[in-house]
Design a protein around this nucleic acid. Structure first.
Lengths: 193, 193
DNA sequence: CCTACCGATCGGTAGG
DNA sequence: CCTACCGATCGGTAGG
């Protein structure tokens, strides 16, 4: 399945619809209607409805992985590593809220083996964050926290942006990234006495 | 529609199924099968599939509101108010993960006027948290943060528990509540110099 | 990309 | 709570 312009257009409208109504409540005819073609015509471009979901989820997963890779390439200590990772994550979410939202919420509708593969990639990503927190705690840079709880706390907060953030709202994207880096860092730093 | 034991059993299995597969991907017959009755027999107890969703969502909404009311009844300053609100929220989530998860993720599938009513209650709850943060910042108890961003950050983190927490996992519920109160408070407190 | 069509399943009702 | 049934819609295929 090559990535033609039409195929990308399908994934784009599907991202918006999947985000808005959810994968299960979106029919292939809904997607087709948004493109002004017949439902059956969609199958000239995609193998199945799940094929479209997988393409979206896979693309976002890769974006998160690459952004984390780049963020963690610099090592000036745990605090800066975490700051860079949080900023990178927020930026990936903000870069495409529809697709990020589908990645966050709809990947569960994938069937095997796609479901397991994405789960493994999500787990690996979360593990990197958890290890970073554990390292920082050992190094005395962070407060003593359960790294599993802290990682889940932060990932939920970061992914939540895809649900509530509105680009036409009162918070500019850059301000949001700054605010979330501050909140995330502080949540792990010892409070002043 | 009175709340009989059978009706409660329906809502309980529906909560588990809605959480696991999502509302749209759960059929009325799935719910009936879990209760060993025929799909059509369900309608002796409920008016519609949405009726079941609404009952679950409404009950959890009320629980959050009552817990917040009680938590905020005590006023020994913004820090303690926030600590009590966060703990209360975590406790409501942990008290029933299935129902909380449905409240967090599936309420969007409600149709009007139910959808709008729940949205208004969620907004009011979020506003209370936002105002509390703004008060604490003005009082000098919290760092200078955008109260909207901070409230969304915290609510996403807290609600996320319903998605990832496993009671049979390594973190005891009490430890989780403690850890999340610490993380939440620190995220708003000025870090040590 | 279209028309025509498929079997399966959906939420829900009638009438016991 | 059951059997029998309803019209609508689902994802997907055949054959152009």
């Amino acid at each position: 399945m090559v990535e033609t312009a039409r195929r990308r257009a399908i994934e784009d409208v599907a991202s918006a619809l999947f985000r808005e109504r959810g994968y299960a409540a979106t029919s292939v005819r809904d997607i087709a209607r948004a493109l002004d073609i017949q439902g059956a015509s969609l199958y000239a471009h995609v193998a199945s409805k799940e094929d479209v979901l997988l393409a979206i989820v896979d693309r976002v997963a890769t974006r998160f992985e690459e952004a984390a890779q780049e963020a963690l390439a610099v090592d000036r200590g745990p605090v800066e590593r975490l700051a860079r990772l949080v900023r990178a994550h927020v930026e990936v979410v903000l870069a495409d809220l529809d697709q990020s939202s589908v990645f966050v919420h709809e990947w569960r509708h994938l069937t095997e083996p796609n479901h397991d593969r994405i789960l493994a990639r999500r787990d690996a990503y979360e593990r990197r964050l958890r290890d970073l927190i554990a390292d920082g705690t050992r190094a005395g840079a962070f407060a003593h926290v359960d790294p599993t709880a802290a990682a889940a706390f932060l990932l939920s907060a970061l992914n939540g942006i895809a649900t509530w953030y509105r680009p036409d709202g009162p918070i500019a994207p850059g301000d949001l990234a700054d605010a979330f880096v501050d909140l995330a860092l502080r949540s792990l730093m010892e409070a002043s006495p």
